[in-house]
Design a protein around this nucleic acid. Structure first.
Length: 424
DNA sequence: AAACGCTTCAACCGCTACTAG
DNA sequence: CCTAGTAGCGGTTGAAGCGTT
């Protein structure tokens, strides 16, 4: 299906070059409610290989009772697209638009075409790739983000020539291509933190992920669903499980360069025993976090490198960290002020409130069988080691709560609301 | 070796929140 | 205030990997 271009104007339908299946329409034009023979009556497609062409043809006068033409269009078009595409039946085309479409539509003008078409679907299924990403697609996306920065996801398909919808591009970048992504197995410490944060936040995966540098919400969500949630159901897997073998039998990566451009990447099969990070990468992450501009790994010499276990790093300047080791504090980068990170939390290690709560109550908390009571007792500022400005904000805000056992949050809900503000 | 079932996780879907006009 | 566009979030799906029989 190719619909190269057409324009609509008040009382005017112009079809310059339109084809669908075996039918094609060239140079048909109707003006002033006098449609020409051969004009298709129903068609609504984003053009393939085009910038922002949309097509629209309706073959019947619109009853005034239906409301404005615009509102009719917004309701009718998706339906036509779904059910009547291809029904290019020749009928009289009687348009009586209540609004004027300027030539900008025909010229690829975006604003007006969007106004006409209403809210377009996230992406057209037509001509868009789906499923696993290829290395070529990754390259295109990372190159684009390098130049333009994050955001503007919707522009990527047409500006970068990537046949992925913006939403998919964003997801790919956020969950895989970002240079600060840390891959490898979830460490016991991270797992413990996830459990604690989930106890506090529930399924707020994004918030939880924000406290584990380099981890994505998707990753944590998956980890929770596949590992941790089962524990609560008493279904923790035994030593025969795949999970128990993760890390013991790392998978090495062997790339066939001849196939690089066409092969689908199966990233999920890659498990890494070791994580390499250069000292510069830490600063890089900090800077990028503040700039909110990411640099693609392919272009960034400072990126965090995931190296399959068993492979040799040729760069001995790299700091090698085994996932089995304790994370050095300086490895877990605090990527921004006001953000609570793993090292902060483990630096505090909850000792402040364990001190106040007492060992037995702390045990309850960690067992999860007295969370509400625990929530009612601790002060947020005690829960983690806060950056100074955060503490100041807290102490200066209405939400500040005395850090002693006499504090009363009133309810768990109230606490969570407060904690949420604090966490955010 | 093949079949089967379970596990994993990247990607998708639908929805909501936010923002700009 | 309303509407449309967009980003982001959480739930879900399904293909591939892996273990067991």
């Amino acid at each position: 299906m190719i619909m190269q271009f057409f324009s609509l104007q008040s009382f005017n339908c112009k079809i310059i070059n339109c084809s669908f299946g075996d039918l094609s329409f060239n140079g048909e034009e109707s003006t002033s409610g006098a449609p020409r023979e051969g004009a298709p009556d129903r068609c609504y497609f984003p053009g393939e290989g085009s910038t922002d062409q949309c097509s629209l043809l309706l073959g019947a006068p619109l009853p005034p009772s239906l409301g404005s033409t615009r509102s009719v269009l917004l309701r009718v078009l998706p339906f036509l697209r779904e059910h009547q595409i291809g029904a290019l039946v020749r009928t009289t085309c009687t348009f009586n638009w209540n609004f004027q479409l300027s030539q900008s539509l025909a010229q690829g003008g975006e604003t007006e075409s969007r106004a006409v078409m209403g809210r377009r679907p996230c992406c057209s299924k037509e001509g868009m790739n789906r499923g696993a990403w290829t290395l070529t697609e990754d390259k295109i996306l990372t190159d684009y983000v390098k130049v333009h920065g994050e955001g503007k996801w919707r522009n990527i398909p047409k500006e970068a020539g990537l046949k992925r919808c913006g939403k998919s591009c964003r997801l790919r970048w956020m969950n895989y291509l970002r240079p600060d992504i840390k891959r490898g197995n979830i460490s016991p410490d991270e797992e413990d933190l996830i459990i604690r944060l989930h106890k506090l936040l529930g399924n707020r995966w994004s918030l939880i992920a924000g406290r584990l540098p380099g981890r994505t919400d998707n990753e944590i969500k998956n980890y929770w669903n596949t590992h941790l949630s089962k524990r609560g159901q008493g279904k923790e897997r035994g030593p025969k499980s795949n999970h128990s073998k993760v890390g013991k039998k790392p998978i090495t990566v062997k790339v066939d360069e001849d196939l690089v451009s066409s092969r689908v990447i199966r990233t999920k099969a890659l498990r890494f025993k070791e994580v390499f990070i250069t000292p510069d990468a830490q600063q890089h992450r900090i800077e990028n976090h503040h700039r909110n501009v990411a640099i693609p790994p392919s272009m960034d010499p400072n990126l965090v490198q995931n190296v399959p276990a068993g492979s040799e790093s040729s760069d001995r300047s790299l700091i090698t960290l085994s996932s089995n080791e304790e994370y050095p504090v300086d490895f877990m980068v605090d990527i921004s002020a006001g953000e609570i990170s793993v090292p902060e939390i483990f630096a505090s290690d909850f000792t402040s409130f364990s001190h106040d709560l007492g060992a037995s109550e702390m045990d309850k908390v960690m067992r999860g069988d007295d969370a509400d009571n625990y929530m009612s007792k601790i002060a947020p500022s005690q829960a983690f080691l806060l950056p100074e400005e955060m503490e100041q904000n807290w102490s200066g805000s209405d939400y500040y709560i005395q850090a002693n056992l006499d504090s009363d949050f009133g309810s768990l809900t109230a606490f969570l609301e407060s904690a949420e503000e604090w966490l955010i």
